[in-house]
Simulated scan of single mutants.
Amino acid sequence: MGIFDRFKSNKSAQDKARNMSDAAERQANEKTGNKYESQVDSGQQQLHKRMGMDEDRPENP
């Protein structure tokens, strides 16, 4: 089992990564005066998708 497989199955690690990603997005938007808000948001969504943290993905009960 690789590191990304373990990450995808660890809900607390995903929550922590999501919080860090949100903070980085806020800081980038603040530094650029929201000039590149759509590009930053798109990059964050791609990161979440590649890391298996899709918001659209249904949660396993």
Rank of each mutant, 00 (worst) to 15 (best):
A17T: 09
S21M: 08
S21Y: 02
F4A: 02
D54H: 02
E30K: 10
D41H: 09
D15A: 15
N60T: 13
E59T: 11
R26Y: 04
Q14E: 12
L47C: 03
D15E: 15
D15S: 15
N19K: 11
E30S: 10
N10C: 11
M20P: 04
K31E: 00
A17K: 12
K16V: 09
K31H: 01
E30R: 10
K35R: 10
A23M: 12
N60F: 08
K49A: 05
M20H: 08
N60D: 13
E25Y: 00
V40M: 05
E55N: 14
D54T: 08
P61D: 15
R6L: 04
A23D: 13
Q44C: 07
N34V: 02
M20V: 13
A28V: 00
K16A: 10
N19I: 10
E30A: 09
A24V: 08
A23W: 04
S42F: 05
K16R: 13
K11R: 15
S38Y: 12
Q44P: 06
M53A: 10
S42N: 07
N19A: 12
Q45C: 03
Q39L: 11
Q44Y: 07
Q44D: 07
N60L: 08
I3D: 04
A23F: 06
G52A: 06
A28M: 02
D41W: 06
Q14D: 09
Q39S: 11
V40A: 05
G52H: 12
L47I: 05
Q14K: 13
G2T: 00
K11I: 15
Y36I: 02
R50A: 10
R6N: 03
K35P: 04
A23Y: 13
D22P: 02
A24L: 10
K31Y: 00
R26Q: 08
D15L: 15
H48A: 08
